[in-house]
Structures are given as C-alpha cells and as structure tokens.
Simulated assay, not measured.
Amino acid sequence: MSGTEGWGFTDDRGTELGAARVPLRVAAYVRAGAALLDLGVTPVAVYGSGHDGEELDPAKAGGLRAAGVPYLGPGRALGAEALGELRPDVIVDVTYDGKSPYALDEAVAERLGIPLVTLSVSGERALPAILDRFAALAASLAAAPGRSASGAGSAAGPVPAAESTAGPAPATPAAEPADPVGAASASAADLAAAEALLRSVAAKGGGAVLALSGAGAEQVHLARPQAWPELAHLAGLGVRLLDPGPGPGANWLTGDWAGVAELRPDLVLFDEREHATPPYALPSGVRLAAWNPETPPSPAAYARFFRDLAEALVA
C-alpha cells in the first residue's frame, strides 16, 4: 500500500480504523512505542502508564531514549491539548482486557478525532501472536511516504522542547538499516536463535525459576506463569517455572518474602521496572535475573531477554 492509497487497520478490540493516508506521526504508549521503534517506525512521542512518573523508566525505554523520542509522562494525565500539539496521525496503546486502552483515556483520542489502535498483550494470547500483530501494524505504518527504512528522520518531526523529558537526541544518529525487510528477517532469525539457545540450556537443567515483582520489605507479587505470554512461552521452551499456587489474583499471587523461600527457586526473575522494589529476602545461593513484564513486543527485545535468561541459567 502506498501512502496515497489510504490506510486501514483492525485492532484487537475489533475496531476498524482508517485514514485518508498512511499515518506518519505516531504517538504511543511506551511499551508499544519501543516495539514500533524496533520494528522500523519511530514515534513522535511516547507516554507512560499509571505506574510511571514524569521521567521515562529506563527498564521500559528500549531504544527510545537513544533515538531521542520525547516522553510525555503518564498517559492518564495527558489532556487533548497537550497531545494535540504533537499533531499525531495515530495513537497506539495496548490492552489487557480486549476492550479498553491501558494507558490513555480513550476520550482524549476521540476529542481529537485521532485513530487509536489498541493491541492485546494479555495472557489469553500466545507470544508469537502478539509479536505478529505488532509486526503487522508496523508494516502498515512503514508504508508512509517520507519514512526512512527504520522510521527515523522526517517521521518524528519537530517537537517543542518543553514537551520532552527524554533528553536530547544524540548528535550523530546511528546508521539506519537500508533494507527494512532484511532487518525484519534478521530480527526473526535472531529470536529463533535465542529460543534455540534457551531450549538447549533448559534441557540441560538450570533449576526452577520464579518470576516476581517486589512491593517492599513486607510484600511481594508472585507471577502466575500461564497468565503472562512470555512466561508461558518460556515454559514451552522447557524452562521450569514455579507456580505460586492457589489464591486470589489472576496474574499475581500477593504474599511475603517467606513464601518465596518456601517455593525454593534456583533463579528469581525480578521485575526491574522502577515502581517495583528489588528482592528483599532470598535464600542463600538463589540466582537473580532481570525481567521486564512490559518487554517491547518485538523479536529483537525478546531475543535479548531470552539470551540473558539463558546466560543466567548456566551461571
């Protein structure tokens, strides 16, 4: 599709979205924006969730800071005027319930008359399907005229300095891939290689893995593996993930650090986002590896995560 033929996309709420031309200026929730950047589309700006503060969380940033993409603060605090000043052609968010955008008030996009694409990242969808949906959106946006092979340059356009808290763009941009199709194939191959490595390591042992999010000295949230697409995918690759057991909570079981010790993990995947706290009390000898529960849904991001986990399992 050329940029003059119009644009259409059906999001994961079943909403059919369209525009007279392929959107060039994309605003996005930080997780979605980092994924789109990996996939060749550079946002004009990103916003955070209710967990985020006024500064971009390094754990969630992906390549956004290095690319000079401005961060606008929490999405729920954004009004139509602030977002409208960016002149976005489309907004991209995620959904966990298949109905509502996670980080932005949908009424803001409605008042501006801007299409709001919402893609599911819930545990009801397998990780490969999530990656495919983001890849399909990126491919539809990459047809915009004036967008370079990686979406940089004119795609971002000027942004008033007062709106950016992500820091200045680097003085000399990194070289951009000349072949977006080749770059996408390379990312997919990299992910496949990382999966093969992790499968091989898991087959040789590596111990039991527990994923958690710290909530202070007295409380910790233990992840239910099948509720998280990437954790379920790890289990499919042979990683032995611990389930915290029965109790309230669809995604997490909230308990204390003594409960972590009772599960006897060999390796703890700890939530590295800024709003989470580091592990407080773990048995001697337990290994640690960082986990971002909002890893950008791109092959490149998950390849990095899988390689890091494979390294931690053999340490």
Rank of each mutant, 00 (worst) to 15 (best):
M1Q: 03
M1S: 09
G3T: 07
F9Q: 02
D11E: 09
T15V: 02
L17R: 08
A19R: 15
V22G: 14
R25T: 12
V26T: 01
A28G: 07
V30T: 08
A32F: 00
A35G: 08
P43N: 12
V44N: 07
D52L: 04
G53T: 05
G53N: 03
E55F: 15
E55I: 09
L56F: 14
D57A: 02
K60Q: 13
R65Y: 05
A66F: 05
G68D: 01
P70G: 09
Y71G: 06
G75C: 08
A82D: 13
L83R: 11
E85C: 11
V90A: 00
I91H: 12
V92E: 00
T95Y: 00
G98K: 09
S100W: 15
A103D: 14
D105H: 13
A107T: 12
V108K: 10
V108D: 15
P115F: 10
L116I: 01
L116V: 11
T118P: 15
T118S: 15
G123V: 15
R125E: 08
L127R: 07
A129K: 11
I130F: 05
I130G: 10
A136S: 01
A136M: 03
A138Q: 01
S140H: 02
L141G: 13
A149L: 15
A152N: 10
A155P: 04
P158A: 02
V159Q: 03
T172D: 03
A174R: 09
A175H: 09
P177D: 12
P177L: 07
D179N: 11
P180L: 07
G182E: 10
G182H: 11
S185R: 15
L197F: 10
L197T: 10
L198F: 05
G205W: 14
A211M: 14
S213L: 01
S213C: 05
E218H: 11
E218M: 10
Q219P: 04
H221G: 12
A227V: 03
P229L: 05
L231K: 09
V239H: 00
P244K: 06
G245V: 08
G255D: 08
D256T: 05
G259H: 11
D266L: 02
V268A: 13
F270L: 02
E272T: 03
E274T: 07
A276I: 00
P278F: 05
P279N: 10
A281Y: 06
S284E: 15
V286Y: 04
A289V: 04
A290K: 01
P293T: 05
P293V: 08
T295G: 02
T295S: 05
P296M: 08
P299K: 06
A300H: 03
R304V: 15
F306H: 07
L309W: 01
E311K: 02
L313G: 14
L313I: 09
V314H: 14
